[in-house]
Amino acid sequence: MTAVTTCPCGLGEPYETCCGAFHSGLKSAPTAEALMRSRFAAFVVGDEAYLLATWHPTTRPKRVDFDPDQRWTGLEILERTGGGLLQNTGTVEFRAHYRWREQREVLHENSRFVREDGRWLYVSPS
């Protein structure tokens, strides 16, 4: 895994007390947006175990293949519906910026999330 000091999720907090606390299992993401941000951070640092653990079992791949030519550079949250502390479903629309073979690229997605047994899980693009 890649070492970082400032959390790549975009909130400007130290990694260890922000998404790092979710990645290590000290805390669970309280909202769909928090899970989205922590998953982006997991892609940045290469935390395959966290990505798989937070992926809904009905859509989870067997493994995550990280492209060594791809470097995630920033996250923009565009919109969210539901996904709050007292809800069990939600969506988060985002743009994830990255560089691939020195080209600037953007992944734009509206992701679906569900909360099961008190834990938020990524389902799929909506």
Rank of each mutant, 00 (worst) to 15 (best):
A3W: 02
T6C: 10
C7Y: 13
C7N: 11
P8S: 12
C9F: 01
G10M: 06
G10A: 05
G10L: 07
G10P: 07
L11E: 12
L11I: 03
G12A: 15
P14Y: 04
P14L: 06
T17Y: 02
C19W: 03
C19G: 08
F22L: 03
F22Y: 15
S24K: 12
S24Y: 03
G25V: 00
G25P: 02
G25H: 03
L26Y: 01
A29E: 04
A29V: 04
T31Q: 13
M36W: 08
A42Y: 01
A42D: 06
A42T: 06
D47L: 00
A49H: 13
A49Q: 15
A49V: 12
L51H: 01
H56V: 11
P57D: 09
T59D: 00
T59Q: 05
R60M: 13
R60K: 15
R60Y: 14
D65R: 12
D65P: 09
F66K: 05
F66C: 10
D67H: 05
D67F: 08
D67G: 14
D67L: 00
P68E: 14
D69I: 06
D69N: 07
R71F: 06
R71Y: 08
R71C: 09
I77A: 07
I77S: 02
I77T: 03
L78E: 06
L78F: 01
L78I: 07
E79I: 00
E79M: 08
R80C: 08
G84V: 00
G84E: 07
L86V: 03
Q87W: 07
N88E: 14
N88I: 11
G90Y: 08
V92S: 00
E93D: 06
E93W: 05
A96L: 13
Y98R: 01
W100G: 11
R101F: 00
E102A: 13
L107Y: 02
L107E: 03
L107Q: 06
F113Y: 14
R115S: 06
W120K: 01
L121I: 03
S124W: 05
S126E: 06
